[in-house]
Design a protein around this nucleic acid. Sequence first.
DNA 1: TATTGTTATACTCTATAACTATA
DNA 2: TATAGTTATAGAGTATAACAATA
Lengths: 160, 160
Amino acid sequence: MSDTPLLDLEARLHSEHPEALRLWLRLLTCTQLIEKRIRSGLRERFGTTLPRFDLMAQLERHPEGLKMKELSARLMVTGGNVTGITDQLVAEGLVERVEVEEDRRAFRVRLTPAGHAAFAEMAQHHEAWIVNAFGHLNERDTAQLYRLLGKVKAHLRPIP
Amino acid sequence: MSDTPLLDLEARLHSEHPEALRLWLRLLTCTQLIEKRIRSGLRERFGTTLPRFDLMAQLERHPEGLKMKELSARLMVTGGNVTGITDQLVAEGLVERVEVEEDRRAFRVRLTPAGHAAFAEMAQHHEAWIVNAFGHLNERDTAQLYRLLGKVKAHLRPIP
DNA sequence: TATTGTTATACTCTATAACTATA
DNA sequence: TATAGTTATAGAGTATAACAATA
């Protein structure tokens, strides 16, 4: 139980922690159901995808722009993917690459005015879908769920 | 606020329910972090993927086997994908298709003895990863989180 | 006609690794 | 040497739609 958690799995694990497994399956199911709604909403209403929306959401929180490296870390994907998604959004005039004076290798990606406007509209619907998904939670439940997930997150990322 | 939730979004949504949005982002982050761990664990240790594991997990709960249609519903993916994943697992001797007497269009997919053994080993590690992910939750927190997510799930799927 | 399952297709996201240009 | 970002590649997962066989 202490420091050799993987040595005698066969003997005990399958029945020792069924609650953790049930919890995980429920967490996964909830997330997937909500995520599917958002993905189809974004696709059907705006012809876009969740990773693209997420990238724009990050930029909206950082009007001065974010470096590719920062975007990569925040979106939890590798650099090549950020390049690809950014290229698409640049081609559509929604984001732009701005040179960084101090470092000529890097630049900041930021929303264009058109991108800001497009994001604002999407964000409204996005928020409505979210609010609807959690529609039956009262304030207390919402706060408690948020708090408990905070504990989980803190343990998952020792250095947030 | 009552029956026209999408008409005047611009005016109110962005500031009216920030808690729901925060909750969703945290829920998504937790799920993604855990999921990434599980995916890389399955890949590195067992050379397999999460959808394949999930399919086998469904079969393990149903020793008599499941029809493709049932697997499709449970895994929340469309039929073509189930065919593809099943084909892979059949090729590796982990699952088998068994004819259904009453309906010659359909059959049941079930684990082979080799598949059962392979799944048992994976499931042990899988459970260890899950237990570790929720390692800092005490029993009360776990139960409460499970209960709250149950509320969310019930609202998401009116007919479970 | 409707349903079960397959096939074919196309698209998105992803990680990896080799590459460039700067630092 | 190390870092920022790109390119190229390959693979997995997904949805869609057309299809065959059976109900």
